[in-house]
Structure formats: structure tokens, C-alpha cells
Write a protein that binds this DNA or RNA. Structure first.
Length: 544
RNA sequence: GCGCCUGUAGCUCAAUAGGAUAGAGCAACGGACUUCUAAUCCGUAGGUUGGGGGUUCGAUUCCUCCCGGGCGCGCCA
């Protein structure tokens, strides 16, 4: 369909310039209602003011430029100031063929300039298991990566492991004190320690493995054990959630490999860092921040910001054309600072993107419960997976735009699992797979045949074809706007078109040519549905 | 006080980055299986898009004020 859009746009532009109508924005887009054609443009309305003519007179000029036997356009209408274009069947048939011929490659690598992009997401502190809040980040970040990859970019998925800071120390202490409690020696569990049940579990495990004397060991021992244990759990949860990272970046390496010192050195050399009140500050105000920020505290300990800056310096050195960070909404106040820091490091600000994902509020037994790892109050991603399964969870997470709050009612999710709209799409896929299964039994195949697609004229067949050819447009849009949920809307539309078609058009019938043509259409649907489902992380099931 | 996000049907959310009569699912009501999976399809009902003002041919979308919700504003991470 993109082909048609650019064809129309070019044609309209040509007419505008030959008439000396200035340089208005030419927008050709899908109308809201199918009665207004397949594509439409508001150009007559826009031009009316500029050229002081009625929209009707203007549109007549445009309509006259499209001949009866136009390659792409069957009909052009003027309604309410809009130009409405109806796509020719000829084009639909051609495109359905392209889908079948290209198969999985259809729509892939469409982007003009493939970039090397890094997407960093989840990056939850390894101080406890992932909870349902992290689940949203995992689902969003992974689907976004899949989409960017699909349009042709080279994407690296990275998880930043905060294994160096204070909070790790606290985890070590928390485990150790719990271990002491268990073996019955005097203990003092810190007030701001990690109170979750999992801390006790780890402590118990350590005692079982190393004996009661283990409590004599220093905090580092417990820290190391806890970190590895929790990180393994996180990796397992993510894997079962269908999310795989290409790189797990350890914060510790920033210090071990002296990247941190290098960055500080660099900033000092550039005259961007200065000392005040015995602390080291970065002149972020020079790059649009509200105030300068501390890099190294007066006590000599670097701030989180300084570490993060070093981390991003490392990213920059790795040569990405675009660096995308997926952050929680609570980090929004941090964006300006980070952008300024990135700028200070000499990396173009516009190539750094901090995408904010709004909070997930969790409702359990009708009550809104908070999610604090430290307080140990949270519902884990694992629990959610066990309750509703990967597909429902992932679908639900990305079906809402990332900058809208998400309400997750666990009880409802449990009860409504079967009624979840996700199944609507999976069912469409299972149904069409079943058609192919039956076709195989009857030795009907579309392999190597050249079906007569002109037999496809039923309104539901046409509706389905039109939905199919929208796919590349939607994919591109989702990629440029980082809007995963657009794919969900599209999936609803496509599944609806297919179910409708399925109800009114029997595929395997008595008419052989029609059977082949329809089977061919189902084949195209299978390809697109499979792709779209995969992008949002939902399994395409052959059988349900 | 300042900043970011947000308010759309009873509920959970869309609305193609300014478009045409604001759409889905769930919940409610009524139809359709001798036929490729009825986890589907068709229909009915449900709305002053939080409220006021403004810009525009045209506003759920942009600006402004007010009201409500979430989250920030550290030499915390």
C-alpha cells in the first residue's frame, strides 16, 4: 500500500506544481471509515484557502488527472472536501501474489538507511525477582526490538546489571542477617533491608549448601551468592517470557576496566567538570539541564549518575547510530540530565532516546497494591506467567500505548483469561491452519500454481486483501514512532477481516479455481498474521 | 510551587501525530452451526471525549485556565 500512497502523493504534487498552487503539505492516509475509500487526502480543504477556490473546483482538477484504467486507482471521489481514492483490484491481486512469493521476507528490511541500534531495557536491579512492573518493560522493549529489526535495523538488546552499587551491599547484608536468624545467632536485620521472602529462601539455601558456620563469612560472600542466584532467576523468567538479551552489561566492569576514570578524565580535560564543596560537578547546565550535577561526592564515592554516564560512554564507544533506553516513568526527571551528559560526551543528543514506560498499577482483591522490591510487596512476573501464560501477558502489556498507565487486575486477568482478546487472533491463525490441514488431506496445494485471483470479488475477500496490504505501512509506523501497540490494533483488524471471510466464504469448495484462489488468499493471511503475532511476542498456534 | 504522563461507553483500552457519523473487547439483550475449529459471525443498547475558554474550514488530538489520578523534582539508586 505504501507504493500506492507514494504514487498518489507524487501525482498530487505534480498537479499542485503545474497549477502554481504553492507548497502545501500533501498527506495521503487511511480514512477512518471504509466508505471514504481506501486512501484519502485533505488536499482540497488545505488548498481552498491558499488558492481561493472552492474545494470542489480544486478536487475536480485532481480527479481529472486519474484515468479510468489507472494502474492503482479504480475510482476517485470528492466527499466533504476530501479526495477519496479506491484502490484497484488489480493492485490488490498483485500485492497478494507478492506476499505469497516473498513469504516471511515480505515487508522486511524496508527502511532506507539501516542503523545500528541498541535497545536497553528492563535493567532491574538484581536485588529481587522481576515483578509485573518489569514485565511491561520486558514486553515493550522486546517487541520494539523485534519491530526495529524487522524493518531492517541491526538491533542489540542489552540489560544493564547494577551489580556495583550500595543496593547490592544491602542485599548481601539482608541475606546474611536472615541466615543468622535461621541458625539462631544474634542478628540485626537492617531497617531498610530487603524484606522479601526470597531473601530468606536464599539464606536457607546457602545454609543447606555450606553448613551453619557459613554465617561467619563476610558480606561479600552472601552478596555474590545472592546476585548470581537472583540473576539466574531473572534470566529464566525472561526466557520463559520470550525475551532474550544479546548482552548483559555488568556495572562492575566500568570500574574494573577503568572506563569510569577515563570518562571523568575526559570531562575534566574538556573543562566540563569542576570542583566545588569538595565534590566534582558536571556542567550539565551548559547543555540545557536545570542545574549542574554531582559526579563524585565529597566523600569520594561516585554518584549513580556518574556511573550511568560512564556506561553510556561505553555504549557510544561501541559505535551505535542510535541508543534507546527504556526507562520507568519515575525516571523522567533524569532524562534532561542524561541528555546533557550525553551531549557533554560529544554524542549527538538526537541519537539518544529515552523512552518512558508508564507505571503498572496492580489490583489484587479489588485493592491497589504497591510494588516495592525493598518492602517485599510485589507480584512477580513468574506468578503472572503461571496465572495467565506468556501470550496473554505479553499481549496485554503491549496493547496499551507505553505512555498510558496500565491497570493490571490480577483477579480479572485470571478469570478472563479465556475471554482475552488475544485468543481472537490466535484463533484466526488456528482456523486458517486448519484449512491448510484439510487441504493437505484432499491433496490441494497452492505450491507452484498460479491461481486466478480475479475470482476474489466477494466483499469479505476484498476486505481481507485490503487489510493484508496495510501491514508494511503499519510496521513502518510502529517503528518510526516506537509504538508497539499499533501492531495490536492492526492484528485486531486483520483477525476480524479473516473471521468475517471465514464465515462467508468457504475456502475448500466444489469450484476448483475458486478454491485455489481462496487458499492462496488464506496463505497470504497466514504469512502476515504469523509475522504480526511474532512481533508482539504472541505464539502463532496451529491448533487450539 | 515546578516538571513529565494521564482523564474517552458500566469496566479495560483504541482512534492511523489536526480530519469526515469517536471505535473494539468484556459485561447486558436478541439472532446464526448437518457445512474448512461457534474461542466465530450478525444485530440491539450503551458517549456533552473531566469542565470552561481559545486557535482552525474542522479539535478526543494544539494553546490556556480550572478539577481529578499517577510519577518525579537529592552529594538516593
Amino acid at each position: 500500500m505504501e507504493e500506492v500512497i507514494s504514487y498518489i502523493t507524487k501525482k498530487l504534487k505534480h498537479i499542485v506544481s503545474t497549477n502554481n498552487w504553492g507548497n502545501p503539505p500533501i498527506i495521503v492516509d487511511f480514512p477512518r471509515d471504509e466508505r471514504f475509500g481506501d486512501l484519502s487526502s485533505n488536499l482540497p480543504l488545505v488548498l481552498a484557502k491558499i488558492v481561493k477556490k472552492s474545494p470542489k473546483d480544486i478536487s475536480d482538477v485532481f480527479i481529472g488527472a486519474f484515468s479510468e484504467d489507472d494502474e492503482y486507482i479504480n475510482k476517485v471521489e470528492f466527499v466533504n472536501g476530501f479526495l477519496n481514492f479506491f484502490v484497484s483490484y488489480k493492485f490488490l491481486y498483485r500485492e497478494i501474489k507478492v506476499i505469497n512469493e516473498k513469504g516471511k521476507e515480505y515487508g522486511r528490511g524496508m527502511v532506507e538507511k539501516p542503523l545500528k541500534i541498541q535497545v536497553e531495557f528492563v535493567s532491574a536491579n538484581p536485588t529481587g525477582p522481576l515483578h509485573v512492573g518489569h514485565g511491561r518493560h520486558a514486553a515493550f522493549g522486546d517487541s520494539l526490538s523485534r519491530i526495529l529489526e524487522e524493518v531492517g535495523h541491526n538491533v542489540q538488546r542489552e540489560y544493564y546489571v547494577n551489580d556495583a552499587g550500595k543496593q547490592m551491599e544491602m542485599l548481601g547484608i539482608s541475606i546474611k542477617e536472615r541466615a543468622k536468624e535461621i541458625v539462631g545467632v544474634p542478628s540485626s536485620f537492617p531497617e531498610d533491608g530487603y524484606k522479601g521472602e526470597y531473601v530468606k529462601d536464599i539464606a536457607r539455601e546457602i545454609i543447606e549448601k555450606y553448613g551453619r558456620e557459613v554465617v561467619e563469612k563476610d558480606v561479600d560472600f552472601f552478596k555474590e551468592y545472592g546476585l548470581n542466584k537472583i540473576l539466574d532467576g531473572i534470566k529464566e523468567d525472561l526466557l520463559d517470557f520470550g525475551v532474550e538479551f544479546d548482552n548483559w552489561f555488568s556495572e562492575k566492569t566500568l570500574y574494573d576496566n577503568h572506563i569510569f576514570e577515563k570518562v571523568i578524565e575526559y570531562l575534566k580535560r574538556k573543562g566540563l567538570a569542576y570542583e566545588k564543596d569538595e565534590a566534582l560537578w558536571l556542567k550539565t547546565t551548559q547543555f540545557g539541564d536545570d542545574k549542574d550535577r554531582v559526579l563524585i561526592r565529597s566523600n569520594g564515592i561516585p554518584t549513580y549518575f556518574a556511573g550511568d554516564l560512564a556506561y553510556h560512554y561505553d555504549k557510544i564507544m561501541r559505535g551505535f547510530d542510535k541508543i534507546i533506553d527504556v526507562w520507568g516513568a519515575d525516571h523522567h526527571g533524569y532524562v534532561k540530565r542524561m541528555k546533557a551528559g550525553i551531549h557533554a560526551l560529544g554524542y549527538p543528543e538526537e541519537d539518544f532516546e529515552a523512552l518512558l514506560v508508564q507505571f503498572v498499577s496492580l489490583i489484587k482483591e479489588g485493592k491497589n497494591i504497591g510494588m516495592s522490591t525493598r518492602a517485599g510487596e510485589f507480584v512477580t512476573l513468574r506468578e503472572l506467567l503461571n496465572e495467565v501464560g506468556k501470550d496473554v501477558a505479553r499481549f496485554y502489556y503491549v496493547s496499551k500505548s507505553a505512555d498510558a498507565h496500565l491497570e493490571f487486575d490480577l483477579d480479572k486477568a485470571r478469570h478472563e483469561t479465556k475471554d482475552n482478546p488475544m485468543f481472537y487472533m490466535q484463533y484466526a491463525y488456528a482456523r486458517l491452519s486448519s484449512i491448510f490441514e484439510k487441504a493437505r488431506e484432499r491433496n490441494i496445494s497452492i505450491k507452484g500454481v498460479n491461481p486466478d485471483l480475479t475470482l476474489l470479488v466477494h466483499e469479505d475477500e476484498v476486505r481481507l486483501m485490503k487489510s493484508l496490504i496495510k501491514y508494511p505501512y503499519i510496521l513502518r509506523k510502529a517503528a518510526t514512532h516506537y509504538a508497539v501497540h499499533l501492531l495490536i490494533n492492526y492484528l485486531q483488524d486483520l483477525a476480524f477481516a479473516f473471521h468475517k471471510f471465514y464465515t462467508s466464504c468457504k475456502v475448500l469448495g466444489d469450484n476448483k479455481s475458486l478454491t485455489l484462489a481462496r487458499l492462496y488468499l488464506v496463505g497470504a493471511t497466514k504469512i502476515i498474521l504469523n509475522k504480526a503475532l511474532t512481533l508482539v511476542g504472541v505464539t502463532a498456534l496451529e491448533k487450539m
